[in-house]
Simulated assay, not measured.
Amino acid sequence: MPTDGSARPLWESLHGTVQGVNKARNQDHYEVEGLGTAGAPLIMAVADGHGSAVHARSHLGSRFAVDLFVQEARLFASLAQPRGEGRPPSLAWLMRYAEYAFPRQLVSAWREKVLGNWERSSAPGDPPTPEEEKLLLYGSTFVGAVLTPRVFAAWQLGDGELTVVGDGGQVSVPLAPKEADLGDETESLCTPKAWLRVRTHWAPVTAPSRAPRLVALSTDGLSKSFASDKGFRQFMTGLDERLSTEGTECVRAALPEWLAKASQHSGDDTTLVAAWHTGDEPARQPVETVEPVEAVEPAAPVDMEDLRDPYRSEQ
């Protein structure tokens, strides 16, 4: 994980992945970087390739999803910070960017990456293949988050979980869909107009004490290993408690065994990336108070010109 010598970490991370029993390969992919400081924002992402014969290249699709999310997240984090002597964009502008521009840019980049990979790997003389069939081969879900001293934002498409343990110890899954998916069905990056199906969590950090204690991203192999949602939440509560009492290093050492047991129960690839809040960055800038927006599902059109210039004056 990169370090920022100019400031101590605000977050410590732990992560791991286990291939599912009888699986030919691990379809999950993940990445984590940064410290949560202004100079090194914390970025986390997990993606789960669908893995069936219809999605024969989904192990690539999940890797592309994570790599491209990290790129877009770096851009988003840079927009949230002051530039030189100027003020950063307003939280209202950043929220619109997160809800509308970010999902569209990520999905567009993923589709371009997938189609480019198809073209490079196809043999001369292969029969023409419709674009949607090409995308289907790479189908994947994703969950990603960005944490800076100013804002906590996250995005999700398809199954998996974003779990947040608040400053008071309360456990929530703010990006859980309103209705559970049926069986193995899930939304995907290969779905037409997938950016409209991306769910967004938006939570400005209005005070140091209001930052979450724990933020965790996991693929559905973890949640499916429990008999109920209650069991999954109890696991996350236990993770928070052990981080509090034993520290990050002890939990890191135990994590592979926990994931292996979960994978045995679910039979699926199992991945967890988590960040534990360790402290507050000195001399943080005051921020505007904006109420958190939970699980936003953008449907209304938005003028993309308004999102290209963060310093454009608002009417």
Rank of each mutant, 00 (worst) to 15 (best):
D4W: 12
G5S: 12
S6H: 09
S6D: 15
L10A: 11
E12H: 12
S13Q: 08
Q19D: 05
G20E: 13
G20T: 08
G20F: 03
V21K: 03
G34S: 11
G39C: 05
G39S: 12
A47Y: 09
G49I: 04
A53E: 15
S62R: 07
A65V: 03
D67W: 00
E72W: 05
A73K: 03
F76L: 15
A77C: 11
P82K: 14
R83D: 07
R83Q: 14
G86W: 01
L91V: 02
L94P: 01
L94V: 04
L94M: 14
M95T: 11
M95D: 11
Y100P: 02
Q105E: 14
A109S: 15
W110C: 12
E119Y: 11
A123C: 06
A123W: 11
G125F: 08
P128E: 15
L135Y: 03
L135C: 11
L136I: 04
Y138Q: 05
Y138D: 05
G139P: 04
F142L: 09
G144C: 10
P149F: 05
V151P: 04
A153S: 15
A153F: 01
W155M: 10
D159N: 15
E161F: 05
V164G: 03
V164W: 02
D167W: 13
Q170V: 13
V171M: 08
A176N: 00
L182M: 14
P192T: 12
A194V: 07
L196S: 10
A203L: 06
P204T: 03
P204K: 06
T206C: 11
T206G: 01
P208F: 03
R213A: 13
A216D: 00
D220R: 09
L222V: 04
S225N: 05
S228K: 11
S228P: 01
F232W: 10
R233P: 00
R233V: 07
M236V: 15
D240G: 14
G247P: 04
E249G: 00
E249D: 15
C250F: 08
R252W: 02
L259Q: 04
K261D: 13
S263D: 04
S263K: 07
S266A: 12
D268Q: 08
A275T: 02
W276M: 05
T278S: 09
A283N: 14
A283M: 07
R284D: 11
T289N: 06
V290W: 04
V290Y: 00
E291M: 11
E291N: 05
V293D: 01
E294M: 14
E297N: 05
A299H: 13
P301W: 06
D303R: 05
E305V: 03
L307W: 06
P310N: 14
Y311R: 01
Y311M: 12
